[in-house]
C-alpha cells in the first residue's frame, strides 16, 4: 500500500483492530490482483455475513438480501483490479453492497414484501427481551414476533438514506466517518440523518422504548 493511501486509510479506519484488519485484507487483495483468484474466497467467507446483514436490514427481505449479497461479491471480484487501497477493503465492499441495495430499493419502491429471519433468542437478545417482558413460553415468542414486525415496519417508514445510516451505525457498528465514506457524504450529514432517523423511530416505537 502506498504511503498516501495508507495515511488516508488510517483516517478512515477507526480502531487499531480495523487497521490491522485492513492491512490483512490489502495483502489478500494484492494476491488476488496478481492472479491468485482463489484467495478471494477468503474475503467472501470473512465478510459474507456482515454484508448480508446490512442488505437484509435495508431490504427486510431475506431472498432479496441473498441475491444482492451475491451480486455485491461478484461486482467486487470483477472490479478488484481497480481497487487501489485508498480505503479499506471492507469499506469498499460495503460501498458496493450499499449502492446495489439502494438501486434495488429505488427500482422496487412500490413492491414491499417482507420476509424476516428468525431472531436467535440467546445471549444479549435474551437479556433485552427479558428486560422488556416477564412472559415465558408461547407468549414470549408471540411478543418477540410482534416486536420484530413493529421494528421492521418502523424502519421501513424511514427514507432509504436514513434507514441505511441507522443500519450501518446501530446494527453494524460502523463509525460516523466510515459511514460517510461508504455513503459518499459528509460526517455532518451522517450525524444529521442519524438524529432525524432516531427521532422518527422513537415516535414509532414509543410503546417499547423510553423517551
Amino acid at each position: 500500500m502506498n504511503p498516501l493511501a495508507k495515511a488516508l486509510n488510517k483516517t478512515l479506519v477507526a480502531s487499531p483492530e480495523r487497521q490491522q484488519e485492513a492491512d490483512t485484507d490489502w495483502a489478500i487483495v494484492r494476491r488476488v490482483q496478481e492472479g491468485n483468484v482463489g484467495d478471494f474466497d477468503t474475503l467472501i467467507r470473512k465478510y459474507r455475513e456482515r454484508v448480508y446483514a446490512i442488505i437484509y436490514n435495508m431490504t427486510s427481505n431475506r431472498e432479496d438480501a441473498a441475491d444482492l449479497t451475491q451480486d455485491a461479491f461478484i461486482k467486487a471480484f470483477q472490479s478488484i483490479h481497480r481497487f487501489q487501497g485508498q480505503s479499506s477493503f471492507f469499506t469498499w465492499l460495503y460501498r458496493i453492497a450499499v449502492n446495489g441495495s439502494l438501486s434495488h430499493l429505488r427500482r422496487n419502491k412500490l413492491r414491499t414484501f417482507f420476509s424476516f429471519e428468525k431472531i436467535h433468542d440467546e445471549e444479549k437478545g435474551h437479556e433485552i427481551i427479558s428486560q422488556l417482558t416477564d412472559k415465558t413460553g408461547g407468549d414470549r415468542e408471540l411478543f418477540v414476533k410482534e416486536l420484530q414486525e413493529k421494528l421492521n415496519e418502523a424502519l421501513q417508514k424511514l427514507s432509504i438514506k436514513h434507514r441505511t445510516v441507522v443500519t450501518l451505525f446501530e446494527i453494524d457498528g460502523l463509525s460516523h466517518e466510515e459511514i460517510a465514506d461508504v455513503m459518499n457524504c459528509s460526517v455532518g450529514t451522517v450525524r444529521s440523518r442519524l438524529h432525524y432517523a432516531k427521532q422518527l423511530l422513537q415516535s414509532e416505537l414509543q410503546a417499547y422504548v423510553r423517551s
Partner: peptide
C-alpha cells in the same frame, strides 16, 4: 396482541440491537 401496560421500556439502541440477532440458519 401483547398488553403494552405490562411492557417495561428499554432504550431505542437496545431495541435496534435486536436486529443483530436476525441471522440466517447455518
Amino acid at each position: 396482541m401483547a398488553d403494552h401496560s405490562e411492557i417495561r421500556k428499554v432504550s431505542l439502541e437496545e431495541v435496534l440491537r435486536l436486529k443483530r440477532l436476525e441471522r440466517p440458519e447455518p
